[in-house]
Design a protein around this nucleic acid. Structure first.
Length: 274
DNA sequence: CGGGCGGCCTGGAGGC
DNA sequence: TGCCTCCAGGCCGCCC
């Protein structure tokens, strides 16, 4: 379940393996991802081009190519992007492969096919409809209590759902929304209309701290995530509440509870989240 | 326009 | 052992 930290860990792990490499061939085995993969367009954008940068916006990995195009990769739920030896056999669910000039292969594997691989013009990339409505990058200085408070505006919904809204803040998914609320001591069902300035600041700080801690530990590997070399993260051992229903809260010892909000699981501590 | 919800998709887990 | 159901959830589109 790759969220911002996992994509950031992936990005950093790919830099030494991809930067300066030339893509020699693009192979699409199954175009049926979230958006149909346009193999001809991918090849036109990437074949013969060097990789000159690796960026990230929200949960999207941005591969900057020489020329005027970038590759945009989203891991969805179960996507993995890894660099493997050129002779490695094609894996099940390996839908897209980029063959590199050093003989290696950049493999995109995604059993659930919620992911995305496409090429877009680099100029104005972030103005693309997929990025245009996104909220601030939480680790780029754009996330403050005031940002959150202003985004809340006249909204009245639960703060957990609010944090999951990419227009509010980019890159926060279910795991880190739960963890950040726990860190901030805020109940996931609390209405955003009933959060004071001081608590917005605490929440913004908690979101940043949670994401940074997860990146420092290589991300969270519950089922699928690995970095570009195939290595798992280990933040899952640091999760305070996520997927820990019934276990004691690491802060106050009361049992962690599971509820469902807008169709997805929320984990929190009824003792220290108010 | 905010917000809720279904659909997409497969593998793994759990029940019987 | 095998079959069934459910669940994981990012994102989009539809609806009220």
């Amino acid at each position: 379940m790759p969220e911002l930290p996992e994509v950031e860990v992936l990005r950093r792990s790919l830099i030494p393996r991809l930067l300066g490499r030339r893509i020699v061939e693009v192979e699409v085995s199954n175009p049926a991802l979230r958006e149909k993969v346009d193999g001809a367009r991918l090849a036109a954008a990437a074949a013969g081009r060097r990789i000159v940068g690796l960026g990230r916006r929200a949960k999207y990995l941005l591969v900057d190519l020489e020329g005027d195009h970038s590759l945009v990769v989203h891991l969805g739920m179960s996507g993995r992007l890894t660099v493997v030896a050129g002779g490695a056999p094609r894996e099940k669910h390996e839908h897209v492969a980029f063959h590199l000039d050093d003989g290696a292969r950049l493999r995109f594997r995604d059993p659930r096919r919620f992911g995305l691989v496409l090429a877009l013009p680099t100029a104005g990339l972030l103005a693309d409809r997929r990025f245009a409505g996104l909220g601030p990058e939480p680790l780029a200085g754009g996330l403050t209590g005031e940002t959150l408070s202003r985004a809340a505006g006249r909204r009245r919904g639960a703060v957990k759902s609010f944090l999951l809204d990419g227009r509010v803040v980019a890159g926060v998914g279910n795991i880190y929304a739960c963890e950040a609320l726990h860190r901030a001591g805020i109940h996931p069902r609390r209405s955003v209309a009933r959060i004071a300035a001081r608590r917005w600041t605490r929440l913004a700080d908690a979101v940043r701290a949670t994401l940074e801690a997860a990146i420092a530990q290589g991300g969270t590997t519950l089922n699928d995530f690995t970095d570009g070399a195939g290595a798992s993260g280990y933040f899952q051992v640091s999760l305070a509440v996520y997927d820990r229903a019934g276990e004691p809260c690491p802060r106050c010892g009361k049992p962690v509870r599971r509820i469902v909000q807008t169709g997805r699981s929320t984990f929190y501590c009824g003792g220290c989240q108010r």
